[in-house]
Amino acid sequence: MSVRLKIISAMQQIAVEQKVTLPPLDDDLSLHETGFDSLGFAILVARLEDDLGTDPFTISEDAAFPLTIGDFIRAYENVPA
């Protein structure tokens, strides 16, 4: 499974758990519009760290938290393996 698919799948799982109805996850969808609150994103980042072995937002101190779904996925895709 690609990094992108893993992220989308983790978001869908959390949406079910948190009873959030996700809009279509297009790349330019703002993270605010996903319906996730900060706890939802904290859960997502923790699970992705376990699954992908990396947490791009902790590794780099100056990494700004992304604004859109596309930015979020790219933060994971751009981490050197």
């Binding site: 900060s38 706890l39 994103f41 904290a42 859960i43 980042v45 923790a46 947490d55 937002f57 902790t58 938290f65």
Partner: peptide
């Protein structure tokens, strides 16, 4: 607790 870049800490 586990540190989180979003909320400071989460429960695991």
């Amino acid at each position: 607790s586990r540190r989180s870049p979003i909320t400071g800490a989460i429960v695991v």
